[in-house]
């Protein structure tokens, strides 16, 4: 028993160490590479305040805030996915299931197409749409308690319902769809400190909430009856954690658009590495979420430079095969 915990601990520290190394490497690589090449000495100059020219602007107002926005988006989406997969006891759960993508997508698209003079209102609109939709789904599914299966079915139904409106918008305004595609695919292009300020409070709140709530999530995993038997107020925990997940995902979607992949796959990848104890799963998901988005966005910027791909495309393209590989290795 003792050797098992020791091995467990060693694995934990190793994964943590590798995670931190990857995160640092990711940040360094994405800071160092971009469409405009900035030499190491220039970078040094920028961060020590010696260089305040055009390169300073590119680094401090374009590249750096974008990297930070990406990292925070990754953290939020991965946390949201990890929480939902525990609350709903369903491996396929992701922020999309509680209506985040559908609600945010419809609201954002409606603003971009129907109220083009108010495009600066896209982030708050997406946020409102996401939160509103997830509340409606929760209400629809609530019947003396929010049963996971009912939540999922209500989510699927409402997503289909809102999806119909989105399709209708695309058909009737097909000439204006071009202006929305980047957002729909998930993109960090043009993100700056405004977006960092928008998402950061939710990341802080989410990290504290999720880490604090992880032990309750563990109890929830035993099943509602068992959890109740252990003295947990199941409905309260479920509701609070779902709202937290919704806030996390909504804030991420409102700054980066519909990035679907992170919330579903990252918690899984993390689970395959560290196991399903939420006390480990939650913080590691956050780290791996940040790493994934940073690397994917660097690739999105660099692969066809100066042609920028939406980060969502890169993420699905690289991440899905990696996930399948992990799955295959695990089942063998």
């Amino acid at each position: 028993m003792k050797s098992y915990t020791e091995q467990d601990n060693r694995k934990k520290y190793m994964t943590g160490g590798i995670g931190l190394i990857l995160l640092t490497t990711g940040i360094c690589v994405s800071v160092a590479f971009g469409t405009v090449s900035i030499s190491l000495s220039e970078i040094f100059g920028i961060f020590t305040g010696a260089n305040e020219g055009g390169m300073y602007h590119i680094m401090m107002n374009i590249r750096l805030p974008r990297i930070i926005t990406g990292a925070l988006t990754g953290i939020n989406l991965a946390l949201s996915g990890a929480i939902l997969q525990s609350v709903l006891k369903n491996p396929l759960a992701d922020p999309g299931i509680i209506g985040i993508s559908a609600g945010a997508g419809l609201f954002a698209m409606a603003v971009m197409i129907l109220l083009p003079s108010y495009t600066h209102a896209v982030p708050p609109a997406a946020f409102t749409g996401a939160i509103l939709t997830s509340l409606i789904i929760y209400l629809l599914a609530y019947d003396g308690g929010a049963h996971p299966l009912r939540l999922i079915l209500a989510g699927v139904a409402l997503a289909a319902f809102l999806g119909a409106f989105m399709t209708a918008l695309m058909v009737f305004y097909s000439d204006k769809v071009q202006g929305t595609v980047n957002w729909m695919a998930g993109s960090l292009s043009g993100r700056s400190w405004i977006h960092v300020r928008m998402i950061l409070p939710y990341t802080v709140l989410g990290l504290f909430g999720a880490v604090f709530g992880s032990k309750y999530l563990n109890i929830l995993m035993l099943g509602d009856d068992a959890a109740r038997g252990l003295g947990l107020s199941v409905e309260k925990v479920k509701f609070i954690m779902t709202i937290l997940a919704a806030l996390l995902a909504a804030s991420a979607v409102s700054v980066a658009g519909l990035l679907g992949f992170v919330g579903l796959i990252i918690p899984h990848i993390t689970r395959l590495i560290v196991g399903s104890d939420n006390r480990l799963l939650i913080p590691f998901s956050a780290v791996f979420g940040a790493i994934t988005v940073i690397f994917a966005d660097t690739a999105a910027r660099m692969v066809f430079s100066p042609y920028e791909l939406p980060v969502g495309v890169v993420m699905a393209f690289l991440g899905a095969p990696f996930f399948l590989y992990l799955l295959k290795r695990r089942t063998r």
Partner: peptide
């Protein structure tokens, strides 16, 4: 149309920027 690349734009330093929004 190409997705916006802000670094490219900054390096290109345009004299004038024109916006086509949907309105």
């Amino acid at each position: 149309f190409l997705p916006l690349n802000l670094e490219y734009v900054t390096a290109g330093d345009p004299d004038i920027i024109m916006l086509i929004n949907h309105s």
